[in-house]
């Protein structure tokens, strides 16, 4: 069996890739994809920990399902917001969405 540490390492790496995508991407959809990676990192953590450390308690798996569901809802709302930005600005480059500055 693959040791637990590998899963935790994978999840930590995925989380960092997600953060990198969020910080480096200029396209709003790209950032959204980075966020999905971060959420999936948490999911891997929860499922792996549930399986290895507490195989009889399903809370971790249930939590992961909740995260997936909420992530889907969040992506739907996020894409709708991005579309409404696109309709007015005709681009989704977040570096150029700067009508408000102090």
């Amino acid at each position: 069996m693959i040791p637990l540490e590998w899963y935790l390492g994978l999840s930590a790496a995925l989380f960092c890739i997600g953060i990198f995508a969020v910080l480096s991407r200029r396209n709003a959809i790209g950032i959204l994809m980075g966020i999905e990676l971060m959420l999936n990192a948490a999911n891997i953590n929860l499922v792996a920990l549930a399986r290895y450390m507490h195989p009889h308690i399903l809370t971790g798996q249930v939590f992961a399902i909740f995260i997936m569901t909420v992530a889907a809802a969040e992506a739907a709302v996020g894409l709708a917001i991005v579309i409404s930005v696109y309709r007015n600005a005709e681009h989704i480059n977040i570096d150029k969405i700067t009508t408000m500055k102090w």
Partner: peptide, 30 residues
């Protein structure tokens, strides 16, 4: 456009913050 911009900024910040928070929660679950 200002309402759009407010919304997209709020969304991106909020989603990232929630993702970091839920990773922290997974640590406590472990």
């Amino acid at each position: 456009p200002r309402s759009n911009e407010a919304s997209v900024k709020y969304f991106l910040y909020g989603a990232v913050a929630a993702a970091v928070m839920v990773y922290g929660m997974s640590i406590f679950y472990g």
